[in-house]
């Protein structure tokens, strides 16, 4: 099934795209998606997803929003979902 992923900075500058359509299997969770994206886009992407770039961490330093609500790692994605990935860090 297809979902749309939107990327806010710095992800859009790391992978050089603002959004993309991704094909995923059924019963695919956010946790699995983030692992998949980290593998696909490499170290720089990974370093901005997991604390200290550790892909085994159970925690993320990103928010994933669907319909203006933060969804957690166990959320099972549905066909046609549009999610946005961005930093948790707020301001400066």
């Amino acid at each position: 099934m297809k979902i749309k992923v939107k990327y806010l900075p710095p992800f859009c500058t790391i992978i050089n795209k603002k959004d993309e359509i991704i094909n995923i299997p059924k019963n695919y969770s956010i946790k699995q998606l983030l692992k998949y994206l980290a593998d696909k886009y490499g170290e720089k992407f990974k370093n901005n997803i997991f604390p200290n770039g550790n892909p085994n961490s159970d925690r993320y330093i990103v928010n994933i929003i669907l319909d203006d609500e933060i969804i957690n790692k166990d959320y099972i994605l549905k066909s046609e979902d549009t999610i946005t990935i961005f930093m948790t860090m707020s301001g400066g």
């Binding site: 806010l8 900075p9 710095p10 500058t13 790391i14 720089k44 370093n47 901005n48 200290n52 770039g53 928010n63 929003i65 933060i70 946005t84 961005f86 930093m87 948790t88 860090m89 707020s90 301001g91 400066g92």
Partner: peptide
């Protein structure tokens, strides 16, 4: 070493302006 890696594509590359869209997204 760790902090350079953790920062190079966000704050080092863009400064705190990198968080602006994220802050807007959460109504901050």
């Amino acid at each position: 070493k760790r902090l350079r890696i953790n920062s190079e594509d966000n704050f080092t590359a863009h400064g705190t302006a990198v968080t602006l869209a994220s802050c807007e997204k959460v109504g901050d």
